[in-house]
Design a protein around this nucleic acid. Structure first.
Length: 164
DNA sequence: GCCAACGTTGGC
DNA sequence: GCCAACGTTGGC
């Protein structure tokens, strides 16, 4: 584990962009654009190359953490904010001082079995996760090192059930 | 499809 | 600065 490495979670609706879409992308990379919430943007700006990112499927059955990506490029201006035809066009953003940023992430792995929201709720160690807070909508959020460790433990535990 | 929770907008 | 109205998110 690299010193200073941080952990994050990003949400995506699989119908819009799934972990399989990421795995199929050119060089298995994508720009995480379209974030239009200041708190989420600030977390994007705090991301560093090599940070590990949990990939969460919202509006899915069941909603689950489905895999891992990693940050391969730190925050830089999100081009879609200046594109009149883009869904997330922001006429209020000044090109001289862009309001919204994006990062590039690369596929790392897809879990053998997704970790459902229900399963996550059962873990005492994960009680403080932003994701599990009622009404939480933050699409980019930090994950504590302990939580990361617990999630990896769960993934390995579940994978072990299918091991030969 | 419902609706609670939340963020943003804009009138005052 | 207040706050009602509105739009969005996202679990269920």
């Amino acid at each position: 584990m690299t010193e200073g490495q941080q952990y994050w979670l990003v949400k995506s609706e699989p119908e819009a962009f799934s972990i399989d879409d990421l795995a199929r992308s050119t060089r298995q990379k994508t720009s995480w654009d379209g974030v239009r919430n200041y708190q989420a943007r600030n977390f994007l700006r705090a991301m560093r190359m090599g940070d590990q990112v949990l990939f969460y499927h919202s509006n899915a059955n069941p909603p689950s953490i489905v895999g891992i990506a990693e940050v391969v490029k730190a925050a830089y201006p999100d081009a879609t904010q200046f594109d009149k035809h883009a869904t997330h066009y922001d006429p209020g953003s000044d090109p001289g001082r862009p309001r919204w940023d994006m990062v590039d992430i690369r596929f790392v792995r897809k879990f053998t079995a997704p970790l459902s929201l229900n399963l996550l709720r059962e873990q005492a160690v994960l009680k403080r996760m932003e994701l599990l807070r009622k009404g939480s909508r933050l699409s980019v959020q930090p994950i504590r090192a302990l939580e990361w460790k617990e999630i990896i433990r769960l993934v390995e535990h579940i994978a072990g059930r299918y091991a030969v």
